[in-house]
Design a protein around this nucleic acid. Structure first.
Lengths: 102, 102
DNA sequence: TGACTTTATGTCAGATTTGACATATATTTG
DNA sequence: CAAATATATGTCAAATCTGACATAAAGTCA
């Protein structure tokens, strides 16, 4: 993992700490965090593609605008569950989810 | 969605209720539940393939045998987060995750 | 058979995630 | 430019998920 990626993570509020700690982010922790960030990004793209506001998406999800914002910002308080359910609520297929993963 | 699938879901303890309610499982709820069940199944296969007991996997995940059992049983109390982190802990790649999705 | 290992199920206190709210900041539109 | 709309950020009580434990049930093997 390089400096660019590190900044990308740290800037999102992921508490990574010292370089040593950062390097100790285990392979699986890193994979998990990166997956969430990619889903965050994908979700925002998909929502915009559908020409929905965060507020509109929140209504569909029975969530709130602020939570949608946090999802798209890659906030650590957002679970994969919520991200993935949001994709489905936007009409995404499993296939399109799989594409984000690949 | 057919009767077979319904039984598969109900038998796992998903409270689906009456036929009417069942039919009202929205597309996205159904997609979410089915995804979780497929991951459950995939996790069990992967663990067995690696010749690990639930207890051994629990140690790696710093979880417990009972929670692993619930994961593999598709228990509603288990989140996608935990399922996916478990895959990564077993050494699975994003690609192999994507394959389960497709 | 019975001892042993593995998996399943129920429960619960503690931890995490949630929607909601207030409000700040940014973006669009007239 | 200013008003309107959209998005971002901080907080928190309630809801959900968690590991841990006890124990039941199922599977393995001598």
């Amino acid at each position: 993992m390089n400096q660019t990626k590190r900044k990308r993570l740290e800037s999102k509020g992921w508490k990574i700490g010292t370089p040593k700690e950062f390097l100790n982010l285990s392979r699986e922790e890193a994979a998990y965090v990166e997956l969430k960030l990619d889903l965050s990004k994908g979700l925002q793209e998909y929502r915009r593609h559908k020409k929905l506001t965060q507020h509109q998406l929140a209504l569909r999800l029975k969530s709130s605008q602020s939570r949608i914002a946090k999802m798209e910002a890659g906030d650590p308080s957002v679970s994969l569950d919520l991200l993935i359910r949001s994709f489905f609520a936007l009409g995404a297929s499993r296939k399109s989810l799989a594409q984000i993963l690949s």
